[in-house]
Structure formats: C-alpha cells, structure tokens
Design a protein around this nucleic acid. Structure first.
Length: 155
DNA sequence: GCCAACGTTGGC
DNA sequence: GCCAACGTTGGC
C-alpha cells in the first residue's frame, strides 16, 4: 500500500491512536476492489513510500478492519470528496490498518527492481500507478529475506 | 463503442 | 520540472 510520506508516512501511522488508522482517499476502482473484496482482517501489508527522495518499502502493517465504505467521499470538506458517491450505494471503500513494525532498512525501489525473484511483482510493473495491490506469498517471503541481507553498496 | 483530450500518478 | 503511462470523460 503506497502513500506519499509528505501526506501520510509510516511515522504518522505509528503515532496514531492504537497505532491504527483508516486508509481513506483511494479513488481508483482497481485499488478499491482489492480493499473491498480481497483484504481480510489480520492480513499483512507492506507500507510503501512514494513520490519522495527514496521511494520504497518502509514497514509492515496489519489489516485491522476489512473493507467498509469510505465516508470521506461524502464530505465536501474532504480533499477526496466525490459528489457522485451516494451513501445509499457507496462507491469508495477503505480498510483500517495497524502499524506492525518498521523495516530493518529501507527496501528501495531500485533494489527491488534488480532482484530476479521479484519479477512479476505488481509494484514493479511498468507504468504501475495503483496505490493498493496484491503481493504473492512467495514475493512477500522473498522481500523479507531481502530485508535481512545487508543493504546493497554503491557501485 | 471509439477515441481524443484531459487529469493524475509517480519515478527520475 | 519533465514526462511516460495510465484512467476517466464526453462528443460523436
């Protein structure tokens, strides 16, 4: 799950009450479907910082509540207000996430890209712009193994 | 249903 | 700031 740290970082989540917050504001149908249909309470997710000097995976969180309507879509004062979303038929969904831990080190996008085992990871797909996307069990475990290794040196 | 125009995302 | 790659919109 991606977020721009300038808007909402893993530190924000760490400081939130009960280290839990709602993942609101997603306004993309594919990303919405992942949250609404595929995420279950107790699932784990990587927290990814995007649009920043060093984009990459910065930590792990847990889905604390499965998909439910994103009420910020109905509030005109909200930045992601959507006048077309009817409370009777919610268009946008969110989940609640709980902070688990920070990554031992940043798993930067360039490093992830160089790893042959991560070919096919949706995050690395060309032109990918989804802010929420699935990670296979195999890729998940590979990334955790990568985390345990020393960071790549500068060549 | 096609597709051009436009807006957004996000790496660089 | 640039721009590639998408998604959305709306005229036809």
């Amino acid at each position: 799950m991606k977020s721009e740290p300038g808007a909402y970082s893993i530190d924000n989540l760490h400081r939130a009450p009960r280290r839990t917050d709602c993942w609101d504001g997603v306004r993309n149908y594919q990303a919405r479907n992942f949250m609404r249909d595929d995420m279950r309470k107790g699932d784990l997710a990587f927290f990814y910082h995007s649009s920043c000097p060093r984009p990459g995976i910065v930590g792990i969180m847990e889905i604390a509540r499965a998909g439910y309507p994103d009420h910020t879509a109905w509030d005109p004062r909200e930045p992601h207000y959507d006048a077309q979303s009817d409370p009777a038929r919610p268009r946008w969904y969110m989940v609640d996430v709980r902070y688990r831990r920070k990554a031992k080190r940043l798993l930067g996008l360039p490093e992830l890209r160089t790893h042959p085992g991560l070919v096919g990871l949706q995050l690395l797909r060309r032109g990918n712009r989804l802010s929420v996307m699935p990670v296979s069990r195999e890729h998940w475990e590979l990334i955790l193994e990568l985390e345990a290794k020393p960071p790549p040196g500068k060549n």
